[in-house]
Design a protein around this nucleic acid. Structure first.
Lengths: 244, 244
DNA sequence: CGGAGCTTTGACCGGCGTCAATGAGAGTGG
DNA sequence: CCACTCTCATTGACGCCGGTCAAAGCTCCG
């Protein structure tokens, strides 16, 4: 019955009651699937859909006038997307599928009702938003101050961390479904330079690659050149309103 | 009585009832002032304070091992800071004062109670968070894909927009209380190159400077080289729960 | 008058973008 | 099984943007 994986996702942070799980599952209003490369939501459109990633890799991005692209965020299983529609009549960025992906729609009105009926869940959503924001600031720091090598290193570590968090298998290497051009669009580099940079990371023994399988050999040393700090997430349970 | 300016700030988005204004003002728990250059909150500290900027320019930033700095956000009157403390036991970034500044503290427990007592205000805070997030993504795109000239141009436009929104006078030029080093830390450049870049922007007639007064002469042309898009903010009132 | 902080300018160099060519697979149709 | 095509990875040559280092003005303040 759990079409949405919101309950599963929020359950990582806090223990949920059965009623709360039902409430979260009740937000769902159908699901959709997309093929690799498909556009889920266009930029400047008025599509205010809110949804949750069920499977696959989804990304949001901005296009510049000259055709270049900057990927703003990656989204994995459990991530809540499209919330910007609550504050902007036009989509500030576009959303697409990096792999075949499935999402399930969230009914906007029911999400609003959640604030009345389940204040604890609303507060939890509010707190979880902060995690997304901090991820964004970490990427901002990387783009602002890291060299190409550091940017790619930071990206790989962030991806590994987020996959681990989404319970995707990472331990000894993982499939990286990104072209070098997409890595460039994530890091603000060109595809050519991504290629050179990843070769250097291999030669220096930080990572190994074969096909699209990637393995991080020295997370600590990689973290140093990426200016990456591991962050503990722990939502203060005392702050949340009482269970319902 | 309105020590906090939260009510004023949120009132920009939605009409508030008197009771709601009282509730927002009641979140306040004292205020503090800081001198230009003072540190409001250190990185990796366990200071979980939440507060609102009352006056002055405040910024959050990250320090790298080698001493370089990346400024992540600027905060103006009405901005809510320190929410990351709800999800992270250690501050993910530091906060400082760019000018003399005054902030007022928000009582964390009362903020939690707001979710129970005033679901509409909680939903409004949730929606307003999206505005902050989109501001961050705009900066990310600028750092990822703009040249030095574009990055500085984008920064100046963003600052002007946010000052306008905070009802600070901007019309014909405004005082920019930032050193070129700080502009560099905002844009991911060095102070030296910021200097060269701003000279070019002057010579090309986009801006004029005298002292720290800055005037934007051609917002439209500047927006083009900054890949800047003006965004309308409009919180969907139908989505919010009923007034209380 | 002197010092501290900031701005401005020059010389030099390296990292990363650009352009272009080649290789390597995967899929498609004959 | 073999062209053919399309996408993506790889590599080299070359040039420019922006970093680095250093020195000199400018302003404010003691």
């Amino acid at each position: 019955m759990a079409e949405s994986c919101l309950a599963e996702h929020l359950g990582h942070y806090v223990e949920l009651t059965a009623r709360e799980r039902d409430a979260l599952d009740g937000l769902t209003a159908g699901s959709r699937t997309y093929r690799r490369g498909a556009i889920v939501r266009a930029e400047h459109g008025s599509n205010g859909d809110i949804f949750v990633v069920v499977s696959g890799w989804v990304y949001s991005f901005a296009l510049l006038e000259d055709g270049r692209r900057q990927i703003v965020r990656l989204h994995f299983r459990g991530d809540l997307l499209g919330l910007d529609g609550l504050a902007f009549p036009e989509s500030p960025d576009a959303i697409g599928a990096l792999t075949d992906a499935e999402v399930c729609l969230i009914d906007r009105a029911r999400l609003g009702a959640l604030f009345t009926d389940h204040p604890r869940l609303a507060a939890l959503l509010f707190a979880v938003q902060q995690v997304d924001r901090v991820n964004l600031t970490d990427r901002l720091v990387s783009l602002g101050r890291n060299s190409a090598r550091g940017r790619v290193a930071a990206l790989l570590l962030q991806i590994a961390n987020r996959m681990r968090f989404a319970n995707l298998p990472v331990s000894d290497g993982f499939a990286l479904p990104l072209t070098q051009e997409e890595i460039g669009d994530l890091t603000g580099l060109t595809a050519v330079h991504v290629n050179r940079t990843m070769r250097v990371l291999s030669e220096q023994g930080f990572i190994t690659r074969s096909g699209n399988m990637l393995r991080i050999l020295h997370p600590d040393r990689l973290a140093r050149i990426a200016n990456h700090s591991r962050r503990n997430v722990a939502i203060d349970p005392a702050w949340l309103p009482n269970r319902s």
